[in-house]
Amino acid sequence: MSEAGGSDEVILELANVEASYGPVQALRGVSLKVRRGKIVTVLGANGAGKSTILKTISGIIDPRKGQIRFEGEEIQRKDPALVVRRGIGHVPEGREVFPLLTVEENLRMGAYTRSDAAGVAGDIELVYGYFPILKERAKQEAGLLSGGEQQMLAISRALLSRPRLMLMDEPSLGLSPLLTQEIFRIIARINREQGTTILLVEQNANMALEVAEFGYVLEVGRIVMEDSCANLARKEDVQEFYLGMKAEGVRGQRRWKKKKQWR
């Protein structure tokens, strides 16, 4: 898989995707591209529609308009089970482990679409290598794990389907800064060692810009900016609105009337 690391092949492409929850439109024509072997991030505030993008790719939400192409084939409005079989794994927001199943059973559910028992057993050992704590807790109910451990389990569970593309929804949610760093370090490692392409959605823009190569900024359902993460991190607006750095005015006060440049 790693040979794809440097290629420019587009593994996932969204074209003018519109989605809504009843009368509320969450995505207003989103287009983005993810290249194979890369980590791509979508930044945005609460309610910007970040999770909706991932849910639409996974088939949980059917888009009203637009196409989603994965490895050249359209996957919009397909059954979620089929999307998983095609090679897309999803680490849901808020972890969503199966609370009453053991850690190991959770992992086996992650491999539900696979039938090669030996391969699954090997991959379980592989994720235990990434997260040794899960091996210690293998026979415990997942509901008893701490938030960080549950996040590790959610990532491992998604890996078990051997995805070529992993969708990650706010992996830092509710975690301590230290734990967030550890999780992000492992996300980068998985990307490097397994060659898994990752589409990462985050509110923690600092972390996301550090680990990802390319980024999109989403606001109220629209992509308002796209650039390499290095460039994004230098942009004044991103610094102010997503990285929390204050722009000082001439009088040393924050200029409340300042507008984002893309408006």
Binding site: V84, P92, M109
Partner: peptide, 11 residues
Amino acid sequence: QNQLAAYYMGI
């Protein structure tokens, strides 16, 4: 236990 997560697992 978690219908949404089951969907995500391809069940």
